[in-house]
């Protein structure tokens, strides 16, 4: 099985995941900055396919991170994934983007029985979720995702860039203080879930915040 995974909830990233390949990752790329998704994503995917020598026909399914993440960037990945899935006529699924970091935590020596994953939500807030780990199991989402102030997080170790930014007020794990959701981990998570017989959700974005629009109140009359 060959999965194309895409996530643009923070940085732009894409990966080809195969259950045949060593460690599962065939090819992957990720940018460092969080603001140039529209430029880099399509060329990145084009190169990914070329480097791996695969075409759309070889891909079995597409997985996209559905956030939470800053809206415009998040949509660039979902729009890309939905369009590729339509053009290639492949199934498309969505995974919560923070799961990508949770899997990396679970596979690291820093793993904890219970922990938080957080990313930058801008406006002094973080996107966060709480996970638990049982022996040799995938991380299990037990609360979230939410958006809120870092200072109001539950008192647990925090993994991911959202912890790193607010290390002064949260118990941030140093090893993971700049980790962003990455398509390679997201795709591996999807592969593991499928192998376990789980059904994957659709690509509906998790915005968590309403648009800023205010319904205008009635106009004040002069008298």
């Amino acid at each position: 099985m060959l999965i194309l995974a895409i996530d643009t909830s923070a940085v732009a990233s894409a990966a080809l995941i195969s259950d045949d390949a060593l460690e599962g990752v065939v090819e992957s790329f990720a940018t460092e900055d969080t603001r140039s998704h529209a430029e880099v994503l399509a060329p990145g995917i084009e190169k990914l396919l070329a480097d791996a020598g695969v075409s759309g026909a070889d891909i079995d399914l597409i997985v996209t991170g559905v956030g939470p993440g800053p809206f415009t960037g998040l949509r660039s990945g979902i729009a890309t994934a939905r369009t590729l899935a339509f053009a290639w006529n492949k199934p498309l699924f969505g995974l919560m983007s923070l799961d990508a970091i949770a899997l990396e935590v679970a596979e690291s020596t820093e793993a904890q029985a219970e922990f938080l994953v957080a990313t930058d939500a801008r406006r002094k807030e973080v996107y966060w979720a709480r996970y638990t780990l049982n022996d040799s199991q995938l991380p299990e989402l037990v609360d979230g995702p939410h958006v809120g102030f870092a200072s109001e997080l539950p008192d647990l170790p925090v993994f991911g860039a959202g912890g790193g930014i607010y290390a002064d007020v949260v118990n941030a794990n140093e090893e993971f203080s700049s980790t962003q959701p990455d398509a390679a981990s997201l795709g591996q998570f999807a592969m593991a879930l499928l192998a376990a017989g789980a059904e994957l959700p659709d690509s509906t974005p998790l915005y968590l915040r309403e648009s800023d629009a205010q319904v205008p109140g009635p106009r004040k009359r002069a008298l």
Binding site: H37, A38, L41, A42, I45, E46, L49, G56, F71, T72, R75, S76, G77, A79, T80, A81, R82, T83, L84, A87, W88
Partner: peptide
């Protein structure tokens, strides 16, 4: 509108890559 343009541009690029 920047955010609106982004959706069409990403979709168009994906179509170009796919086809």
């Amino acid at each position: 509108l920047a955010g609106a343009l982004m959706v069409g541009v990403c979709a168009a690029k994906a179509l170009s890559v796919a086809t």
